[in-house]
Design a protein around this nucleic acid. Structure first.
Lengths: 338, 338
DNA sequence: CCTGGCACTCTGTGCGTTCGAGTGCCAGCA
DNA sequence: TGCTGGCACTCGAACGCACAGAGTGCCAGG
């Protein structure tokens, strides 16, 4: 196990490197932090830290920079989550309070998060499978054409067109609408399939085809949309990556364009609590020099989706984690109110 | 006016520069194009073209590169629109045909366009004000809470929550729904305000407040959403910008994040036909080194929205214009079918 | 176990040289 | 008048080289 002072040295290295973006040497360290020891001692400590793989030097005769493993130790043991200042908290609240609908909430959130952390923000739309049904609506657009509208407790709305096998009367429609709603309103989307399973049987033979069609579209929608939507923002912050940003930015931009990659990224985050993935801990190769800070958010106790930021491994972890957590909480509140 | 040969020289310069990304000299020009004259003659022509402001040299003793004005002349007089190859056409059709709803169509379009042109693609959602109403739905979520759902002929759906001043009976609701639809279905959104103006008067006093509220939310939605939505893709293609991409990418990414800027950009495009804005012709400063190729698309003859690409001024104009035009046509077809 | 001292190793930078692509200009020719 | 070959000139990119400075590892001494 590393001694107290060596951990302190690692912390100092991380802090300085994050601040200056330059390899940090033993002399500079003792000058900027009151460690109470001489540069020579720090050098010895550094040699140990390097042997253990927490820091590395880009070239001989250069200072040290933290490795992924070093950042990991820093995040796990050395750094807390920095709470936001109260002006920042107020700014968040003001910024989010004006939202008029779910799209707006999500849009504002992603902009806010990007601005607050000066990094790329990713926000997932509230998941369908974890939400509950607020209302199911069926509209008749033409004799044999229906529109299905699904409304969730988080305000999300999905719609689908349905071509019916046979014309469907207005009374049958009202009937189906009423029965559907009485069964599923207030229930979780995940439970819907079983809840509606036997519905067709209770209808007249001539209508059963249409009812089945409607139900299959409904179930399809649930499955399709489990493949969640998400939105990203603040990509211009990628230019803040550091001097080697021209090399780094390409794969990162490509990764960000693949929704699948991002969803997996957020999905890997544990359900509760904040997850930090550092550098090579990210499965996707293009993100090997980035860190991802993600957390779940939701209207109640349970997370309905996740949000987070993507930035260089050399990032201000305490500050970023603080901002991400705070934003997630406020968004949860907003969703609970609506 | 420039002689035929000088125009030919300009065309050759543009083509070579777009291909090689390097300033092109007189010798290389005569070797790669059969102009039938010697380098010395070409040099004289170049001097003239430079005097006229069509080309410039980055440094003395370097080759020439086209200026914005040079590209403008090239696009207006020298270049046609290059039709796509038939495999490309088939690819477009295959790619777009699988779309299930409007979101999907737009999403696929933006990916397709980015891939085809290898540039940043921008696609605007079909405008509300230019669309017609397919259906208006009112749902009662709670005694004094309604949801308004607007459906357009292009398949776009908008919804809004409404808090009523007083409880609103089911019969009143059905009544309002019916009257609303009978007045506005099939009409253009732009005409809706006048069409519903006198609706509250025909209701019982106790319901008038709610009816007015509903109408004001409806009108509000129309206004708000006139500020159109759009989606972008292919930002990783920005890394293809050229050797000075690290400098250029920042302002471009920032501009792309501002929906307002993009909307203005597309808005400037003339209603019919393709618009090309080159370099400094773009009002927004961050886009001074990019060109924008945009065109309207729609389900019928009339454009309901625009789409286009943003790329370096040094782009393959004929090819890009061909791809943009082709994609717009196919999207129009898809929308007309749905 | 810490410290000061010392030799060593690199990288980054500035400077001068060379090389070559490209130009402008001019005299000659059709 | 317009095109061509020739020629001197310019200037940026590439290369080599020396040097300063930051940082290291190691060692002997407290």
């Amino acid at each position: 196990m590393l001694s107290e002072r060596r951990l302190e040295v690692l912390r100092a290295i991380v802090q300085d490197y994050v601040g200056t973006e330059e390899p940090v040497g033993s002399k500079a360290l003792t000058e900027r932090h009151s460690l109470g020891v001489s540069p020579a001692t720090v050098r010895n400590d550094m040699a140990v830290l390097e042997d253990e793989g927490f820091i590395a030097q880009p070239h001989t005769s250069a200072g040290r920079i933290p490795t992924d493993k070093g950042y990991r130790l820093f995040v796990d043991k050395l750094a807390g989550v920095k709470p936001l200042s109260s002006p920042e908290r107020r700014a968040i609240q003001n910024f989010l309070d004006g939202a008029v609908d779910l799209d707006d909430v999500v849009g504002r959130t992603v902009r806010l998060l990007a601005q607050l952390t000066r990094q790329v923000a990713v926000v997932q739309y509230p998941s369908l499978t974890r939400s509950t049904v607020r209302h199911v609506e069926l509209l008749s657009l033409a004799p044999a054409r229906l529109m299905l509208v699904l409304i969730t407790d988080t305000g999300r709305v999905e719609q689908r067109m349905i071509d019916c096998p046979a014309p469907f009367g207005d009374t049958s429609l009202a009937d189906l609408r009423a029965r559907l709603n009485s069964r599923v309103v207030g229930r979780r989307f995940a439970d819907v399939p079983q809840l509606v399973q036997d519905l067709p049987e209770s209808f007249e033979t001539e209508d059963r085809g249409t009812v089945s069609t409607v139900l299959s579209v409904l179930l399809e929608t649930l499955v399709e949309e489990t493949e969640e939507r998400l939105i990203i923002g603040g990509t211009s912050n990628l230019t803040r990556f550091g001097h080697d940003f021209p090399v780094m930015i390409r794969p990162v931009l490509e990764a960000l364009e693949e929704q699948v990659v991002l969803l997996k990224l957020l999905g890997e985050a544990t359900d509760s609590g904040m997850t930090v993935r550092i550098g090579h801990e990210n499965a996707h190769e293009g993100l090997n020099s980035t860190s991802v800070v993600a957390v779940g958010y939701g209207s109640g106790d349970e997370a309905v989706a996740k949000l987070g930021v993507v930035g260089p491994t050399r990032m201000d972890y305490p500050g970023t984690m603080g901002a991400v957590r705070a934003v997630a909480r406020y968004v949860g509140q907003i969703l609970a109110e609506s």
